[in-house]
Design a protein around this nucleic acid. Structure first.
Lengths: 220, 220
DNA sequence: GTCATATTATGACCGCCGGTCACAAATGGC
DNA sequence: GCCATTTGTGACCGGCGGTCATAATATGAC
C-alpha cells in the first residue's frame, strides 16, 4: 500500500511537470488534457484519478509556484532594516516572475473569482491561506518599518494597498510578455527597478495625503 | 445600399449590447455564441457575418469601453495643475472601473498576447493605437508636472512605469470582484483613494531613488 | 406586377475538447 | 495458480466555436 502510494505520488509529479513543460512550449491555453496524458505516457482517464478537473492542474501549479516564491521571500526577509528587506523581497519577487512568466499567467488566471468558484473548497482555502500569508508578510514589514522609525505614516492600511496594486501590476505586465509591441526603450530589469523604487517612494512620501488637493468625481 | 448598411450596423450594436447584457447576468466566460444570437433574436450563423470570431466580440467590447473611458479622462484633463488633473483622471478611472467590472475583465482578457495574436491585424493595431494614446496622455501629464515645477524628477520614465503598474493593479483587483473573501475592513472607494494617494506620493517622493539602499538579488 | 438574379440569413453539421464510465489489466491475499 | 479487489484505460458523451449549402429576401430590368 505504501509502495502504491509512492508510485501514485510520483505519477502526479510527473503529470504536473509534463503539463508545465507543455505549457512552456505551446501556450498553456492550447494544451489539452489528452496531450498532457500522452506526453506523460499515461492514459487520459488516469489523469482524472489525480485531478478532478483540468482547472485543478492549473491551480496546483499556481499554488506550488506561489509557495515556492513565498519560501524564497522568507529566506531573505531578515536582511537589513524592514524597508530594505521589503524592497529586496519585492525586487526578488519581480525577478522570480520574470523567470517564470507562464506560472505568473497561471496565478493570474487562478485568482479570478469565477475560476475559484468552480474549484473544490479545499483548494479554495489553500488559495485563501496563501493570500493571508502574503498579506501578513507585507503588513509585518510595514509595521516593523513604522516601529523602526523608517516610515512615518498614520496607518499601515493606507499604503498597503498601494504596494499590493504595484505588485499586481507587475504581475500583469510580466504575464503579458514584457513590453510587447511598445517601444523597447526599457528592459525588464530596469523596469523592475523603476517600479520597486516607485513603491518605496510611495511609502516614504506617504504622508503626502492631502498635499495634493483631491478633485471630487461628479459622475452619476 | 445605404439603408441595408444602416440595418446591418444596428444589428451589430444590438449584438454587442445583448452580449454585454448576458455577460453581466452570467459570467462572460460561460456565455455561448448561440445564446447571444438567440437572445438577440438572430441566427447563430449571422453573428459570424459581423464578427469573424467570438474573441472579436470580446475585443470590440473591450475597445469600446477603453475608448469611452479615455474620452472621459480627456474631458477633465485640463482641470487644475497637471498633478491635480492627473490624480483626478486616475481617480475617475478607478470609479469607471468599479462601475463596469465586467468590461474591466474583458480588457484584461484582451490584453494578453496569446489573445491578441489570434486576432486580425486591424484589431491588433486598434489596441496598439489606444495603448499609445494612454501612454502619451500620462507622459504629457508627467512632463507638464515637471515643467510646472510640481515634480522634481530626473526622468519621467522612472516614474511612469510605477504609475502604470498601480493602474494595472487596480484593474486586476476590480476584475477580481473587489476584496473577495478578504477582511472587509476596507470599502472600494477608500481603497481607490489609498492607491491614488500612494501613486501621487510615489511621484512626489520620487527622488527617493538611492535613499533606500538596494539589495542585489543573488539567485542563479 | 413579375420574374430572374444577387445578396443576405440560417441552423444542421463538423471537429475538437473536457469529462465519464464500462471494461481491461494488474495486484495481492490465500 | 486462482479469484477478489483495486487501478488504468480509451471509446464515448455533451457541448462548444466555427462553416457552409441552402433558404429567404431584396434588387432591378422590363
Amino acid at each position: 500500500m505504501s509502495y502504491q502510494d509512492e508510485v501514485f505520488a510520483q505519477r502526479e509529479r510527473l503529470l504536473l511537470d509534463t503539463a508545465l513543460e507543455l505549457f512552456l512550449q505551446r501556450g498553456w491555453e492550447s494544451v489539452t488534457v489528452a496531450e498532457v496524458a500522452a506526453a506523460a505516457g499515461i492514459g487520459k482517464g488516469t489523469v482524472y484519478k489525480h485531478f478532478p478537473t483540468k482547472d485543478a492542474i492549473y491551480a496546483r501549479l499556481a499554488l506550488e509556484f506561489s509557495r515556492r516564491c513565498l519560501a524564497r521571500y522568507r529566506a531573505i526577509s531578515d536582511v537589513g532594516s524592514p524597508l530594505v528587506a521589503m524592497r529586496a523581497v519585492i525586487r526578488l519577487a519581480f525577478d522570480l516572475m520574470a523567470q517564470s512568466p507562464v506560472e505568473v499567467q497561471l496565478c493570474l488566471h487562478c485568482e479570478r473569482p469565477e475560476f475559484l468558484d468552480r474549484l473544490g473548497s479545499d483548494i479554495q482555502s489553500e488559495f485563501r491561506q496563501l493570500d493571508a500569508e502574503y498579506t501578513e508578510m507585507f503588513h509585518q514589514f510595514l509595521d516593523a518599518a513604522v516601529s523602526h522609525g523608517e516610515l512615518k505614516i498614520a496607518s499601515v492600511e493606507t499604503v498597503y494597498w498601494g504596494i499590493e496594486a504595484g505588485f499586481q501590476g507587475v504581475m500583469s505586465r510580466v504575464a503579458a510578455g514584457g513590453f510587447g509591441p511598445r517601444s523597447h526603450t526599457t528592459t525588464l530589469p530596469t523596469y523592475f527597478d523603476y517600479v520597486a523604487d516607485f513603491m518605496i517612494a510611495g511609502l516614504v512620501g506617504a504622508p503626502a495625503v492631502g498635499s495634493v488637493p483631491h478633485i471630487q468625481d461628479e459622475q452619476q
